[in-house]
């Protein structure tokens, strides 16, 4: 469905030092720095997949999404989306995709969302019968029946985002790019959005790429993640495998009916992460989990016991720290120029 080969996106950024003299000089002679937003990544995505893009701020996630949706031209490399080259912005391509950005909106601010829906119907040339069916479905699934008649400016952020999503789906895109779709929403609204997005993907077999700062979004929606860091692809595979690789240990959480001595936790095996007020968290290697549990049940006043993966946030920051250490080591060996003045 989506194929990316050796994608690079470099920007030349005009460097203007402060000061009048420098400003005048820069009119004649400009100096540039090259920013490597995306520096050679390749991946394939099959139809109907749900993929999460992860990476720290400025890693190149949004740039990649913009290249995939045809808003940015790649500096190098080949990109196809369902057989189209995005940068040509063919009508047939634009009708198949949609980009939803949590921080930018397409709804007309001072008119009710219904007007934007109508506008999109005309622009995407959606047949009347299909429009009615899609609309009914979106209204009931997102529960926006009462909202679409009110001016957009009067809606809350969550309500607006639901309508934004509806506006994006009127033409039933086959490929959906979601850039931070749940940003700023409260927890229950985030959950609603996730469920809806997943249902849409399953019902219509749409391919879905998501970037989000909320790891819960990614965990709930995306069986596969692609991690981009400093413009480079640093992981592509299942989320579970990533967690296994970075943090093979499980977390055993024990709730105890009475406070116990730290000494009594030691023989259980594994490392004590926290221990306070009747709750102890142990970090235990996968294969040792069973042994630890039986020992704990036998020797301690356990009222409740759960086994969890390490929090995704921790996994990610460890991965990024690992990448950084590797980059620094490499830079040490060969002091190559990262930014080339031109």
């Amino acid at each position: 469905m989506i194929s990316v080969r050796g994608l690079r996106k470099h920007y030349k950024v005009h460097k203007r030092p402060p000061g009048l003299k420098a400003a005048l000089r820069s009119l004649v002679h400009r100096s540039y720095t090259t920013v490597k937003a995306v520096d050679g990544i390749s991946f394939d995505i099959r139809p109907g997949e749900r993929v999460g893009f992860l990476g720290p701020n400025g890693a190149g996630k949004t740039t990649t999404l913009k290249v995939l949706s045809g808003l940015l031209h790649p500096s190098e490399g080949e990109v196809t989306v369902d057989g189209h080259v995005p940068r040509l912005r063919e009508e047939a391509f634009l009708k198949k995709i949609m980009l939803v950005m949590g921080q930018k909106q397409q709804l007309l601010w001072d008119l009710p969302p219904a007007e934007t829906f109508e506008l999109n119907r005309a622009i995407y040339d959606v047949p009347a019968a299909q429009y009615k069916q899609t609309m009914d479905e979106l209204i009931s699934l997102l529960d926006i029946g009462d909202l679409i008649g009110k001016p957009t400016r009067q809606l809350s952020l969550g309500e607006r985002m639901k309508c934004e999503l509806a506006a994006a789906l009127i033409h039933r895109p086959r490929v959906l790019f979601l850039d931070e779709p749940t940003i700023g929403l409260d927890v229950s609204m985030q959950a609603t959005m996730r469920t809806f997005i997943k249902d849409y993907n399953e019902k219509y077999g749409a391919t879905l790429i998501l970037t989000s700062h909320y790891m819960d979004d990614v965990a709930a929606l995306c069986p596969r993640v692609i991690v981009i860091d400093k413009g480079l692809l640093s992981y592509d595979g299942s989320l579970d495998a990533l967690v296994q690789r970075i943090r093979p240990e499980k977390r055993v959480v024990l709730r105890l009916s009475e406070q116990v001595d730290a000494a009594r936790l030691a023989p259980l095996g594994g490392k004590v992460v926290t221990h306070e007020a009747g709750t102890a968290v142990l970090q235990v290697r996968q294969e040792a989990v069973n042994a630890t549990i039986s020992r704990a049940l036998a020797g301690l006043p356990v009222t409740d016991l759960t086994v969890e993966n390490a929090p995704l946030e921790e996994v990610m920051s460890e991965l990024f720290a690992e990448n950084k250490a590797r980059r620094e080591a490499a830079a040490h060996e060969a002091p190559a120029s990262e930014s080339v003045p031109a």
Binding site: E91, L108, D110, L111, E115, T116, E118, L119, R121, A122, I123, D125, P151
Partner: peptide, 25 residues
């Protein structure tokens, strides 16, 4: 977009545009 499709979308564009003009009166 092909010219024909653009012209087909035009009435709706104008209608929504008018609604906006009224909102910003």
């Amino acid at each position: 977009m092909s010219f024909r499709n653009t012209m087909r979308a035009m009435p709706t564009l104008l209608k929504v545009g008018f609604a906006e003009a009224v909102a910003y009166r």
